[in-house]
Computed example of a mutant assay.
Amino acid sequence: MKVVAFERNLQGTGASRRLRNSGKTPGIVYGANAEAQAVELDHNALWHALKKEVFHSSILDLEIAGKSQQVLLRDVQYHPFKQMVLHVDFQRVDSKKKLHTKVPVHFMNQETNPAVKIGGAVISHVLNEVEIECLPADLPEFVELDLAKIEAGHALHVKDIVLPKGVALVAHLDAENPVIASATIPAAVVSDEAASGGAAAPSEGDKPAA
């Protein structure tokens, strides 16, 4: 995705407030052994871009004064109750250095899973994103977890994700291998099954002999 920003010369609280009032959002670009650069972006364009998943997990082409550089979105500050972006941080990307970042997980085949479709199981997504490391050229927009065969009472872990070539889990996730999705049978379903499978209660006329 291409993002257009402009150099920002005035800094400070008052300058940032005036910038926001004029429909702009202040930001900063840093990293790759270069000086940090203050920038400003069109707020409405940024707001719509932030609604796209790809904007948060892909290498972005940031154009400033006609020159383009590759960056990752690193931080976004939102107003506590207004639909307003207060500030954004971008980190420059070095094509030769591995980066650590989070990517979203897309859960596949949940609706066709037999435990869900027939057994009434509910699959819970414990994590919706995972932290990976890779070279910028290998960065995926997302990773997939296949839920086709998970059974009720079982769970899948982050190592069950089939990662693209050149992509690895960060060290702590690889060591801990936390649960990413689990399948359970709701208590109401269990109760209904128990009631329908239990023996019928004796009627008044069926009293046992003394």
Rank of each mutant, 00 (worst) to 15 (best):
V71I: 08
V93W: 01
H56K: 13
F55P: 08
E40Y: 00
D89L: 04
F90S: 02
I59Y: 01
P26I: 00
Q37G: 01
N44K: 10
V88Y: 04
K82N: 12
Q70P: 01
Q83G: 10
A34P: 02
T101M: 08
G27Y: 01
L46K: 08
L86S: 04
F81P: 05
L50E: 07
S16F: 00
V93M: 03
W47P: 00
H87D: 08
L86Q: 14
L60N: 03
I28K: 00
N33R: 10
R92S: 00
S95P: 13
P26D: 03
K97A: 11
E53Q: 15
Q37D: 01
P80M: 10
A32R: 09
L62W: 06
V39C: 04
Y78R: 15
G27V: 02
I28V: 15
R17I: 14
H87V: 03
L60A: 07
E35F: 01
D94T: 06
V29M: 09
L72R: 04
I28R: 02
Q83A: 12
R20A: 05
K67T: 14
Q91P: 01
F81L: 12
T25D: 03
S22F: 08
D89S: 05
S57R: 11
Q69N: 08
F55G: 12
Y78F: 15
R17D: 10
V71K: 07
H87T: 06
S57T: 15
L41N: 04
L41H: 04
K98F: 05
D89Y: 05
R92K: 08
A65S: 15
H87W: 03
S95K: 11
V29H: 07
S22H: 13
N21P: 00
Y78L: 13
D42N: 15
R74E: 07
N33A: 07
P26Y: 02
D89K: 03
D61R: 11
Q37W: 00
P26G: 04
I28G: 02
A34V: 08
L46C: 09
Q37L: 15
D94P: 02
E63N: 12
K24E: 12
H100N: 13
F81Y: 15
Y78N: 12
K96T: 15
G66F: 13
L72G: 05
H87Q: 09
R18A: 15
S68L: 08
R74H: 10
F55Y: 13
W47L: 14
D89A: 05
